[in-house]
Design a protein around this nucleic acid. Structure first.
Lengths: 154, 154
DNA sequence: TCCGACAATGACGCGAACGTCAACGTCAGG
DNA sequence: CCTGACGTTGACGTTCGCGTCATTGTCGGA
């Protein structure tokens, strides 16, 4: 009976996942309530396996990119139609493509937002350079830091 | 008295902005309540100028990339410290950089999510190709469509 | 003059995504 | 045996981002 903790047959308690992903037990139970997770039970206690853990990864990623739990649930649902009817699969396909398009649009938004902020940074930098050049310590770009680090003794 | 509607001195009613940006008056007033907008008044009525309009653009963009109204307000605040103390500007600079980093991280998330969805699409496509190849009409990639369009009579 | 369209404010309501608290079970260690 | 850490299930509270009235005001035509 090996106990390699990295093996896919490894299971997790609710607390372990909570710590690893920095969420609360309340959140995980809430996701379960909403049908996004359905861990096994050992008596009453929830037992999460590696697939539950993967789903959680996707859930949190989805949240970070602005999807609602309902949308995430729908997407996760789409993954388990391996068996379902063919027309179902076709529908799923369309929805997947829609999601991809939406996310790509959102990426555009983010790129625009980043550009705006960069312009703001530039403005502030030139402004500071005029008034208080001394307040620009770590204003250097990351490339310099990287080179320094790579050239250094390490 | 020219009335060129594109001139920067042009003003907008609440309704006009609502229609243009597809939001409700309630939303705009709400943003004002929260300190994200502060249009001029003509008597009681709100009068938005081109700068208010630009701010609204940023607000909606911020929302789309998942920022809360409070965060958006903070960012907008940072833009009007042209006059403020130099150390203030330095703080603003740091916050700007933080925001940029956060957005770049979010873009990573989106890229991951897109990749996941693409994998899902692939799976569904091969699956459909096996069982019901007839249900794959517009499964072609966009490149083909583009070429067709570019080659065609136009 | 009256009407309808649009404006305003204020108050209440609502769904999403949890936080929080109460009340209870279970199991290992001192 | 008792405590403390961890688990469970409700049930209620909270914040955010508005929607939805209700009420009132201000115009510009018919």
């Amino acid at each position: 009976m090996s106990m390699d903790l990295r093996r896919p047959e490894r299971t997790f308690t609710i607390r372990q996942l909570c710590i690893e992903f920095k969420v609360t037990p309340r959140a995980l139970r809430f996701y379960e309530d909403k049908g996004l997770l359905s861990p096994a039970r050992e008596g009453l206690n929830r037992v999460y396996n590696h697939r539950d853990r993967a789903r959680l990864t996707l859930i949190l990623r989805g949240k970070r990119v602005g999807l609602s739990l309902a949308e995430i649930r729908d997407i996760l649902e789409l993954y388990k139609v391996d068996d379902g009817g063919a027309t179902q699969a076709a529908k799923s396909l369309r929805k997947f493509r829609e999601r991809i398009a939406a996310l790509e649009a959102q990426r555009e938004d983010i790129d625009h937002a980043i550009q705006e902020l960069r312009k703001g940074v530039e403005r502030l930098e030139t402004q500071l350079a005029h008034t208080r050049p001394d307040l620009l310590p770590q204003a250097g770009d990351y490339d310099n830091k990287m080179r320094a680090r790579l050239d250094g003794v390490h």
